[in-house]
Amino acid sequence: MKIKLTTVVVLILLVLASLVYIFPIYWTLVTALKTSLEIFTYPPIFFPTKIDLGNFYQPGNVFGAVSQTAIGSVPWMINSTIVAIFATLISTFLIAAPASYALVRYIKSVWLARLILFMTMIPEAVFMVPFFLIVIKLNILNTWWALIITYISFTAPFATWLLMGFFNDIPKSVEEAAQIDGLSPYQIFYRISLPLIMPGVVAAIILNFISCWNELLYALILTYSPFPSGAQTVPVFLTSFIIVEKSFAWGGLAAAGVFTMLPTIILGIIAQKYLARGLTLGAVKG
């Protein structure tokens, strides 16, 4: 079998590129499994000699200056899960799906569509102060709603923008057939068009869930205690490992990082499948 030189070069480049993404994940995982001694060894150890689960769970542990292991993240995890699920579902089904459908089929305004795309590009920090004031006025500081409302500000425009592309791909004749079959515009939307773009909806949900899950800035300023007393999320919990009394709890941070990464990695893999399927959505025979 002859292998072309270009194929080999491309393959090597791809492997190098993927290493850039995979190595940090690997490094986090190994660090989490190392003992504190091996973490600080120089030159660094790439393959730990023995697996230590102490960073994940240790009754009455002490690591550096932080008396925390990854298992301690559970109260924050609960908050993260609830906030991410609500923010994502509300923005996808109550806002983005109807809005994008209306934009594609009825309003057809290019400027409005561009404005929505623009909304997804504004840095979070811009809204930091206004959101803080709004949350104070609404008296919802340190609650799930404070985060859900602020997260919708970026999940809704993103999902709207994403779903517009999917709605655009639905052949008009399918909706016209439904119209002739006697469906009202509302029935056409939820019985025909929305089910047809399910791959897109799932992709939007997963991508938005991941960005809610990873969100740090708003959570940092709008919440101050973990579940059950407050709504602090996992990214904030992770910061507690970084500088506490001038010490870095690398092992605990890495272990908690692995914990937090899991849902996003799993969802990322699923999202990829749905995105690919969404792009090849075969509504009618060509």
Binding site: V174, K285, G286
Partner: peptide, 11 residues
């Protein structure tokens, strides 16, 4: 009506 591309509901 029957459309050129049949316009069946794919789902």
């Amino acid at each position: 009506m029957v459309f050129q591309n049949y316009a069946l509901y794919p789902h």
